[in-house]
């Protein structure tokens, strides 16, 4: 029952910081764990990418959807089956920024015993919303890591909070993240075939994100936090002068601990698709297999016996039986 294991994990991830905060271990919660988690994240990420980069990539893969480049009067699909570097860049952009392959999701239903194929955009929509709002929230947090606040964070906050909802203003990205994460989680729980293939690996990051978003909203709107103290803590990390200001609340430590857990989790599991998508051979290789010879670098040397050598070796015999030869 991976869902219960995951829930247990999350309960611990919430209870531990609560316990530690009441025990007064603020240094552990506010400095040691987040900094260590960040280090694990960065080095783990690089390490995973390096391991992947060292792995052999066997072939250019020509079987992506879309017409490959061939004869001049046949229209090639440059974005889908590119033949050059720029086409690959376009395809990668569409994949990373717009989740194009998810957009083409289909679903299969049985109708009177035969399968019918329909379109389904839910996963694409909520998946995209999840990632986009996560990015926006991430960039907005730069206000805690820069002084004066970088204009990008300011502008984004202004757009994100463009609707005057409550005091302080509700950020639309917060709402979107909650809704999208809830959808992605419920989808795994409600749809039997998706539940069947879901592991703790799939639930835990989603639950962590829900916890992070929930505690964030709680701090912004209900159990208010002293922002100045939070920024003081953050600037302590990045200026290498760790400080532990007064006024950090238990909810804040839960928030921070869940973020740390997510950072540690990142290089260990499926979240590495962030780096991995750039390394996926069906996305990052141009389809020029028919125009260029690709030799796998790890191939064992093959003893080649060319026709010239063959003729050299058997010329006299060939002439003797009257076979034509290239060189006399």
């Amino acid at each position: 029952m991976p869902i219960f294991a995951s829930l247990l994990f999350i309960v611990i991830a919430i209870l531990f910081p609560l316990f530690a905060a009441s025990a007064g271990w603020h240094g552990l919660l506010g400095i040691v764990i987040p900094c260590a988690a960040w280090a694990v994240f960065v080095f783990g990420f690089v390490w995973r990418v390096v391991v992947w980069a060292r792995s052999p990539v066997p072939f250019r893969i020509p079987v992506t959807s879309g017409q490959q480049r061939s004869l001049s009067w046949i229209k090639a699909d440059a974005a889908e089956n590119p033949s050059g570097r720029w086409g690959v860049a376009l395809r990668m952009f569409l994949e990373v920024a717009l989740f194009r392959s998810l957009f083409r999701n289909t679903r299969t239903d049985l109708y009177k015993g035969r399968p019918v194929y329909g379109r389904t955009k839910n996963l694409w929509l909520f998946g995209w919303l999840f990632h986009a709002s996560f990015l926006v929230i991430l960039v907005r947090h730069l206000r805690l890591f820069s002084e004066p606040v970088v204009p990008m964070a300011d502008t984004l906050a202004a757009v994100d909070g463009m609707f005057e909802i409550g005091v302080p203003t509700l950020y639309l990205s917060d709402l979107c993240l909650l809704a999208a994460a809830a959808f992605l989680l419920l989808r795994r729980i409600v749809i039997p075939r998706v539940r069947y293939i879901s592991l703790a690996q799939d639930y835990i990051p989603l639950l962590l994100v829900l916890c992070i978003a929930g505690s964030g909203l709680l701090m912004r709107h209900f159990d208010k936090i002293d922002l100045v103290a939070v920024k003081e803590l953050a600037s302590g990390w990045i200026c290498f002068v760790p400080t532990l200001p007064e006024g950090l609340t238990a909810v804040f430590f839960v928030h921070l601990f869940c973020v740390s857990a997510l950072l540690v989790w990142f290089p260990l599991g499926k979240l590495m698709h962030m780096g991995g998508v750039f390394l996926s051979p069906t996305r990052n290789l141009a389809n020029d297999s028919r125009r260029r010879r690709h030799v796998n670098p790890w191939n064992a040397p093959v003893k080649v016996h060319t026709y010239e050598e063959y003729e050299e070796e058997f010329r006299n015999q060939m002439k003797a039986v009257g076979l034509p030869v290239d060189k006399e």
């Binding site: 239903d109 109708y111 019918v116 194929y117 329909g118 379109r119």
Partner: peptide, 8 residues
């Protein structure tokens, strides 16, 4: 429209 597309 989806029904029409799928022929159901």
């Amino acid at each position: 429209l989806e029904g029409e597309r799928k022929g159901v």
